[in-house]
Nucleic acid binder design. Sequence first.
DNA 1: ATACCTGCCTAACGTTTGTTAGAAATGATG
DNA 2: CATCATTTCTAACAAACGTTAGGCAGGTAT
Lengths: 202, 202
Amino acid sequence: MTKEGLQSDTTRDRVLSTSAGLFCQHGYAGVSMRKIAESCDMKAGSLYYHFSSKDQILTEVLNMGIEKVHAAVAAALRESSVDVSASDRFRHAIAGHLHALLEYSSFTSANVRIFRQVPPSVQHSTLEVRRRYEALWDGFLGDLKSQGQLRNDVDIRSFRLMLIGALNATLEWFDPELGDITELANRYADMLANGIFAERCT
Amino acid sequence: MTKEGLQSDTTRDRVLSTSAGLFCQHGYAGVSMRKIAESCDMKAGSLYYHFSSKDQILTEVLNMGIEKVHAAVAAALRESSVDVSASDRFRHAIAGHLHALLEYSSFTSANVRIFRQVPPSVQHSTLEVRRRYEALWDGFLGDLKSQGQLRNDVDIRSFRLMLIGALNATLEWFDPELGDITELANRYADMLANGIFAERCT
DNA sequence: ATACCTGCCTAACGTTTGTTAGAAATGATG
DNA sequence: CATCATTTCTAACAAACGTTAGGCAGGTAT
């Protein structure tokens, strides 16, 4: 036997990538197996050689979205663990999220946009990956707080929800072709770390 | 003639409210006229007495979502225009957004979740309402800035996008039955105005 | 040459889609 | 009682839906 399933793998990936784009543009029910196939220059029936159902394609697309972002943030935190200031680590983590989010936007925005409208069984099969990502941020923010880098009265869960919500919303308006993602990350990190008011108040 | 179209109006509203809930839960293509009708104890054909098409229902739902939020924020700003501190006005505006967002969540989350996946013609017919709401915030934030209440180096458009993104994301996790919206608004306003770091840094 | 596996195809299934036309029911007005 | 407008219903249309079964072309192994 030669290189096992090589042709198959690239086709599989093409289907997943195409499906991600279609899902995030038209929603779960708005994309048919026939449209996926057509965008891949195939016929609908052929998809069932690589996937057992529409839901399986969807599940893989959703999971890949979070995993890309998780990997990027984990890498950013790993590379700057020592001798880097808290605000720099914060900035790097945000940059990691935004880079992965906006560069694999087919997968990530499929996740952000349609998670709530997919069948509950599919939702359930992506929950673990979601929680792992939330835990990554909670761990990092918890470290910052125990080092005294954060105000004592900020709730980590609240901030994490606000942060990820704000970052994910960039999918709706930011175009990586037109703007610099690193600069965007710096702006966001600055506003979130220091606030926007000229003077701090109660 | 008696009170013109009274029965008709309440039925219309019931259809719109029901449709909003279904749209935000299952997406645009995931909701059929038959399902809308069934949820209203009607038959599909009867819907066409009140609406000319599925797209018309959708358009009205989307517009109502933004208009509710716009009205709430505009009212909050109007009621606190004088003799109120900048941070209080900021907090009230955020509270207005969150209250409307989370209390009319069928309409607002239909808007937030499925705007990008509806037919372009429908998107287009809601753009004006969207822009009016963005202009409301830009005006308020511009006032704050020209009064010297905001840091000079924060970009208003960037912050407005971050702010609305962060606020809208609460739809995905906050339950008004379990938590206090006003308290949520205070927490968010504090984090956004003052930042989360213990000491401000570059 | 034979057999086999991979990858894609065609054709069909039963169901559901948005929408329309025309018939019934309802209740008020003359 | 007859008339009228309002509101809902039924029945049907062509099109599209997810999925399956079986066939066909290509290269690989025996």
